[in-house]
Design a binder for these strands. Structure first.
Lengths: 145, 145
DNA sequence: TTCCTTATTTGTAATGATTACAAATATATA
DNA sequence: TATATATTTGTAATCATTACAAATAAGGAA
């Protein structure tokens, strides 16, 4: 997706496509590593040294609000973000902290819930996230040694 | 569960049953409201005014480490804890912040994953958490008005 | 019980992520 | 171009969590 397409996408979601917002969104799309605020900040600062950390916060909030980016509830020390919107779960290694995507078939999560997840004792379910934790391949190998 | 049974349970999980730890665990078991550290601290401080906030942190870490308490990855501003170990998901209202339990049949989550969740591209899955978000019954009613 | 060793608790200080805020800047519209 | 509005910036404040060392409590041995 080029920058112009991104701009249109942001517009259609009610987010004004400023240079800074495009930079952040472009980084998220191009680096599906579930980066923290600081990782994003360091990356976009390389080309634009006056980029403000506050702008990264503001932009991520705006993109999450618009539904273009997910904030991952992985309950670590810092928040992680993901611009990938295809349904997938996340696995977090408790040893090294790495986060891996786990593909899921569409609707597998909602299928677990009554009414297909539409309602839930009167609640309106809007978002869902399946988080797994444990030892990644590398770390579990280390443990065996 | 009385305090003596709790003490035995803690012992069997390698956690020395001190007065403070029993108080925290008793509070969690008796108040399945997914309390924050501060909520626990305020509660146990009523009877024991010298209870330290640090002890609440230490105790929750110890109980989580021992597998007696779950730390909920709901990605809010503060961590929430749950002593209920029966498999269930959590629904968090984005408007009021309330957290509700969502019952799940045993193994429904792991059944979504390859190999029943045992392995995952070489990863050892140890924990799992299904988080839902949206508007609770009360808040969605408010929205309609 | 008393002594001794070790683990835990306490309270304060430090850390680090996030937010508040106001001035400066950019953007969109007329 | 001029004007109004939204965004960005940088600093300061906030708040949850952690680090740390002294004080205290718990458990075992004599």
């Amino acid at each position: 997706m080029d920058r112009q397409q991104m701009a249109r996408l942001l517009c259609s979601h009610g987010v004004r496509p400023t240079q800074q917002r495009l930079s952040v969104y472009e980084y998220l799309l191009g680096h599906p590593i579930h980066p923290s605020v600081d990782t994003v900040y360091e990356a976009v600062s390389v080309d634009q040294p006056t980029f403000s950390r506050t702008t990264v916060y503001n932009t991520l909030h705006a993109l999450v609000q618009a539904g273009l980016v997910r904030e991952l509830p992985l309950c670590s020390e810092e928040r992680r973000y993901d611009a990938g919107l295809t349904p997938h779960a996340h696995f977090r290694c408790v040893a090294c902290g790495c986060i891996k995507d786990v593909p899921l078939a569409q609707d597998t999560v909602t299928s677990l819930l009554p009414d297909g997840g539409e309602t839930l004792a009167g609640c309106m379910v809007q978002g869902q996230e399946l988080s797994l934790s444990g030892l990644c391949a590398a770390c579990s190998a280390d443990h065996e040694v």
